[in-house]
Amino acid sequence: MEVLERVAFYVMAVIAVASALLVVVNRNPVASAMSLVGTFLAVAGLYLTLNATFLSAIQVLVYAGAIMVLFLFVIMLLNLEREPFDLPGFGRIAGFALSVVLLFSLISLALNATARPETSARGGSGAEIGDVFFSDYLFPFEMASLLLLVAMVGVIVVARRRKPEEEEEGEA
């Protein structure tokens, strides 16, 4: 079992990192979105290795399902062409250097963390999470639903096509 756990972790970690790199490297936005699905599914697998089963299901449903469909719809709506390749300028070299520095500082921070014994009081099943949400965290739960409602209204207001007369009002 021990070996199996290790293998599952390393496979998921490698898939996550590799497809994350593909998201950044691909010049076709649709291919980037597809690689992003790979990362999301691999992170869902990592959640499974952590025994967070409910969150793993939510990750697949919300991220790999809903969010990716939204991304793909927008990509197809905007009808994007492939990005042309251009030589890296100063800003991009600086950005690359900055993220390499970020990578090493984050990893050194991670390696300095002490691994505490994994003695979780409760598991990550749906029943136990529901228990937490409907006792201690009822208010944040309701706030999340309100947030989603506000976001929905906001999306409709921002993305709707304006009538010509409204356009003039906006400019005045």
Binding site: L50, N51, A52, F54, L55, I58, Q59, V62, Y63, A66, I67, L70, F71, V74, R116, P117, E118, T119, S120, A121, R122, G123, G124, S125, E128, I129, D131, V132, F133, D136, Y137, P140, F141, A144, L147, L148, V150, A151, M152, G154, V155, V158, A159
Partner: peptide, 27 residues
């Protein structure tokens, strides 16, 4: 996992909801 997985998952779940709202508005 070292403290209370149910509580941590609840935190992460709220952050997933925020991410979903953020993606909608951003797109």
């Amino acid at each position: 996992k070292s403290f209370d997985l149910a509580r941590g998952s609840a935190f992460a779940l709220v952050s997933v909801a925020v991410a979903a709202a953020e993606v909608g508005v951003g797109l």
